[in-house]
Each structure stands twice: as C-alpha cells, then as structure tokens.
Design a protein around this nucleic acid. Sequence first.
RNA 1: GAGGUUGUAGCUCAGUUGGUUAGAGCGUCGGAUUGUGGUUCCGAAGGUCGCGGGUUCGAGACCCGUCUUCCUCCCCA
Length: 458
Amino acid sequence: MAQKPAIPKGTRDFLPTEVAKRNYMFATIKEVFRRYGYAPIETPSFELSSTLLGKYGEEGDRLIFRILNSGEKMRKADLDALAQDNLPRFANSLAEKALRYDLTVPFARFVVQHQNDLTFPFKRYQIQPVWRADRPQHGRYQEFTQCDVDVVGSDSLLNEVELIQIFDEVLTKLGLPGFSIQLNNRKILSGIAEVCGEAARIVDMTVAIDKLDKIGEEGVIAELEQKGFSEASIEKIKPLFAFEGSNADKLTLLRAYLADSEVGQKGLDELSEVLEQINHLGLQRGELIFDLTLARGLNYYTGAIFEVKAHNVKMGSICGGGRYDDLTALFGLKGLSGVGISFGADRIYDVMTELELFPKELDRTLDILFVNFGAEEGKYCLKLLQQVRNLGLAAELYPSAAKLQKQLKYANDRNVAYVVMIGAEEAAAGTLSFKNMETGAQEQLSSADFLTKCGQLF
RNA sequence: GAGGUUGUAGCUCAGUUGGUUAGAGCGUCGGAUUGUGGUUCCGAAGGUCGCGGGUUCGAGACCCGUCUUCCUCCCCA
C-alpha cells in the first residue's frame, strides 16, 4: 500500500500559478531595491551553529533548526552533558550546523568575513528562505522567505529615511491599499527604563509595554507585577499609557518625560529627525506612526526599530527591521553600524491573496494552444508555433490528436487565452480558426494576419 | 515551550446509545457528442476511517499513547 504523501508541518508546495504570483512579488521588490542602489548577495542555507546561537535571545535559540552531525562526527556527542541533564550543551555537541534563522546575522558574518572586498557603506539586498522551529499558525511558517535590505558602515539617519521610503514604495507598488509603518527607537526605550530605574531589565519592561494595544493597560501592569517590577517602577511607567495623539504630540510629551535621560534625549533627536525628513518627502500609501510601545524582541537593535502592518487584514507584522550598532562586533569587527529592514514575503503574499491584489494575468501560464488534428496538420502548426514563440508568447501544440473536446477542456483548465485550430477544412482553405476562449468568438484568419494579430494582442 | 482543537475517498464533509458490505457533493476518468470548452445527463474508478496499542462477541465511534491540522499564549515575518 502506498504511503500517503505529506510534507513537514509549516512547509508548503507552490503550484505554478502561485509561483507566478510569488515571482511577480519578488520582481517588484527587487526592482525597488535596485533603484535605491542595493545589490544582491546570497549566503548558504545553513551556518555553523556558533554563528547563529546566542544572537536572538533565549527564545530565538530555541527556534533554530539544528542539523544533526553525521557519520563519525556523531562521536562528538557530549554524553556528560546529557548525564548532567544539560540539554542545550548536549544539543550543541550533536549539531555543529544549523539552518539560518534570519538573513541579518548571516549578513553580519558575511560583512566581517569579506570586509576587504567590500566598499563601505555597503548596501546589499538578499532574498532567501529562512527556517524557524516555530509552531505553525495563521501567517506563520517553519520555512519562509525574507527579503532584506541593509546598509552597513554608515550611521547616517538618511539610511533610516531611505528604508522607510522603500517600505512605502514596495508596498504601494504591490497594491496594498493602506499600511502603517511603525517607528520607535531603542534609545527611547532605554531612556524610559532609565527613568523608571529599571535600566537592567529593559527587555522585560519593553516586552510588556509592547502588548499595550493587545492586553490593555491593566494587562501590562499585571505582567509587570508578575515579572517582579516594584510599585515605584510601575508608577513611573504608568504615565506612558496616556501618551497619545500625533507623532509631534508624543514627542513633546516624551521630551519632558525623558528630561533626565541622556540616551532618551538622543533617541528622541534621532527619531524626530527621521520624522521630519519623511514629513518633508511625503509617503504614498504608508502612514508613519511613532509608536513608543513598539519593542521588537531581537536584542541586537540599538537605534531605530520598524514594523509594518497591513490595514484591514488579520495578520501580524509583514515587515520589520532596525539599526544594530554592534552586530559585526560579535564577529570581530567593531565600529560598524548597520541598519536594515525585512519584508516577510509569505505574509505579504497571504495579505495580497486575501485582498485580491495580484494581477489576473498571472493566472495564465499559456497564451495560445494549437489544437492537434494529426501528424500532417501538426507539422504545419509547428512552423507557426515557432513564429508565435518568437513573438514572446507562451504557446504550445497539444501533444496528441486527442478528441477536440478534450483538447479544449485542457485549454480551458489552463486558462488559455486563444486556441488555434488547423484541421482539414482550414488546410484546404489555407486559413486557420482563431478562437477566443473567454468570449467563445471565432474567426478565420490567414497565417500572416494571425501573426500580426498575435503581435498586437499581447 | 504551555493550553485547547482537528484527523473518514484527490478536495469539502455526513456517519444515531458501539452492531451486517462506511456514504454524499465536488473533482478525476469514460460515455451521451468521431470539429468546438465552461452547462446538462448516464456510468466507473477511488477508503487498512492519521498511526500504534487497549477495552469488547463486535470499534470509524470508547480508553491510552503518538503524529498531524487549526487556534490562543510565548515569540515573530
């Protein structure tokens, strides 16, 4: 009995029409990246475990897919660690390699390793799959594709401005009717932690505040209490919940709130400059929002942080990013600041599918089908077929002289635009029947007229 | 990693308190129709009821385990 076929959870197959849509999306994204001066690179699907581990926090490490050592390397297994119930160490000894978790950390490794061959500031884009041992859910996969743009070797805020423009341009070009680009700055969050006297626990604090819109003020306070924050700290945090209004309003409120924090003020300076620039340049469909609750879990961000959400769909963030000052330092190259963003291709695809934003033409993988009436007629068709293909159209001759009904059904199922029939009747008259599959209309044409028409129609 | 949920034909799902040979619609294939698709009619193929164990005279149904689906949390794109 044949085994029922299946693929691992959180992975997907892509049908031809789906690939066509994905390619359209990637082409749009690449084209924008290219015009902003970014060049593509690629890195391996898997890295040394040591490159990835410890870069994404404890939570992230748990989600990294490890690759089991093979052959003799199995002997490196640290059985003492297992005996001591130190599972992480045991796991590390079993797996020297791991699938990449994102594109940013491998990029930092890449930059350090090829620093002598690169010209800084270095601007690159990278579109490749990444893997996470996450629990699959709506919009969450174990294998998905990220589209990253980063620039390293420049701490200019012009880069942040440019990246926001890229968010806006790509998503507008893809046809999203509306989306929010949320902006915050890690330095502001540091400032808040400082003011509250909780500088050491900035991550716990910001993760809790991040949930404000989800669980509300009381929920956040409950979580802070549960994490062991003191009454006094929580009292200091509370005023933040009331910081609402326009971006400018929030800035003003925070200026005062963070008066005693040097980092906080620095963060506000950076943020207001970016806001001002974007305000001056204007955005197409994106709405830039300063969201002081935006935290983002990745612990390597040091400056601006971004997140993008599509309007009118139930879907988590579709893009993210931020500035990281010390990422390359982890690999031995100090003083190189980077900033980058990532488009979540699969979520954007899901959003576009839900909102029906893909052009209809993408469902068509064949423009013209030549009906096969037999060997003799087929020979004549092949000549014409060649000419049609030279015009750039997707065309084919049905491979066997099956019943006409069957061939038309095939054309129908493949969503073919036009069918050409050259049988005994047409051959005798020196014409061909040209049938529009959408309207059903049919006309007799000479081969010359047919080719002219093909040139015009497509 | 925590909690819940799901699994029966290629797909979507019925299947009574446990009781003969497990059904439907859609899809597929063939025919009605040997040169005209999407509609209609007729017919056919297609199932170890996720997998493994258990209870029972008897399990698709009940119990345990396991995997899977979807959801919430965590975290994230």
